[in-house]
Design a protein around this nucleic acid. Sequence first.
DNA 1: CTACCTTTTAACCTTACATTAACAAAAATG
DNA 2: CATTTTTGTTAATGTAAGGTTAAAAGGTAG
Lengths: 234, 234
Amino acid sequence: MEEYKKRILLVEDDPNFGTVLKDYLMMNDYEVTHAKNGMEGFEKFKKDDFDLCILDVMMPYKDGFTLAKEIREKNTDVPIIFLTAKTMKEDVLKGYKVGADDYLNKPFDSEVLLMKIKAIIQRKATETISDSKQFEFKIGRFDLNSKLRFLKFDGGEPVKLSPKENELLRLLALHENDLMPRELALTKIWRDDNYFTSRSMDVYIAKLRKYLKPDEKVEILNIHGEGFRLVINS
Amino acid sequence: MEEYKKRILLVEDDPNFGTVLKDYLMMNDYEVTHAKNGMEGFEKFKKDDFDLCILDVMMPYKDGFTLAKEIREKNTDVPIIFLTAKTMKEDVLKGYKVGADDYLNKPFDSEVLLMKIKAIIQRKATETISDSKQFEFKIGRFDLNSKLRFLKFDGGEPVKLSPKENELLRLLALHENDLMPRELALTKIWRDDNYFTSRSMDVYIAKLRKYLKPDEKVEILNIHGEGFRLVINS
DNA sequence: CTACCTTTTAACCTTACATTAACAAAAATG
DNA sequence: CATTTTTGTTAATGTAAGGTTAAAAGGTAG
């Protein structure tokens, strides 16, 4: 079915438990990288692409949440599952804030973990079809390089974009001529959908409109209450 | 911020618990439909569009899993959360098999539930991007794009439609040449059927007639006391 | 610390939208 | 045919969303 085994980054400081869990996952056809603490976890994360991260919350030096935040800065998509020692409400809430996909209380049932892993990886797989890895866009007479964060007009001097400007323009470009829902940008870029992030986004729309002014065929239209639409008129 | 509140179908047979949960969710800005058993739950599900289903597993007549299966047959996308009485591994596994998005053990912390709801609804929102088919209509010489909310005459300049204009015209188009009952529009679009919403709808009918004037073959007829009919004369 | 860049918040203004009122016209009722 | 009910239409009103600029707050490298 799958070309390759799915890769899991397991960050767990308890060596016994960590090893057992790693072996168990490997027996179930996952490729597992085991890091013994937060630092090591982040190093390994930067080196490879993973399909899923399983992070212990309680760890010396760097706890699971801090690690998750760092991971999120690098990658907004990779699923994260937290392992918490016991049901601590604060932990759970904190986890969701950092963008967790799920959490499990230790001790947990191994089959349940497997099901969760399967469900989450599948879910991401279906999501990832639409937001393929595209970082270069032609927008009318502009070229957007989303990896290097610059925008060129007619092959002239590139204008540097800030991270938020860049991500927003990229999202718009991904939905060229189509609706880019407000909610989508807010959850993907700002990771929160409230009055202030929404206003912030409007500010960025204004900035992008300024950048795009040189080509009068390119415009960002608003669909009231829904979102924005990057259109290229011919 | 949101056009409408998110709608939750809550199926829970314990009347006390169900009522409390319903109230709690409503306090948190969700629109909640409470069904007292599986049958009722399915009936209500068929009647309306929901953004999320919360199903109790243990229920008389029809348990949560059976209900979930029926719901899945009608709709493969709507997120489902199960409420299980206690941690029963079998339940959890069964739940994931039926396509659950999450499950919660009773008793659970209400804030945790809220976070889960938020996370799940957001997740679905980002997934649901490309279902264009149902949103484009040909109405005489007009093209209605219901997703982008515009109406084009003979491929000319698009006219923007407001959300209500758009939904109403879409409903009419879905029933082209056939009766579109007043009540249907009121319950589907206005979510309330009373004197004022009815008058409001009449105002929108007038607006739509104006938009459609350019094609004299297209008209919206009234069927006194029944509803309206979008006809395309040939 | 300063200087610089990025992001958020505030402020003010404009546009978009939905509802309601008001009055006219049709249709039904009896 | 008089009266009530329903519908047609336009305009007025209030509120919410969006556009834009500037100032404040956060962050980071030098």
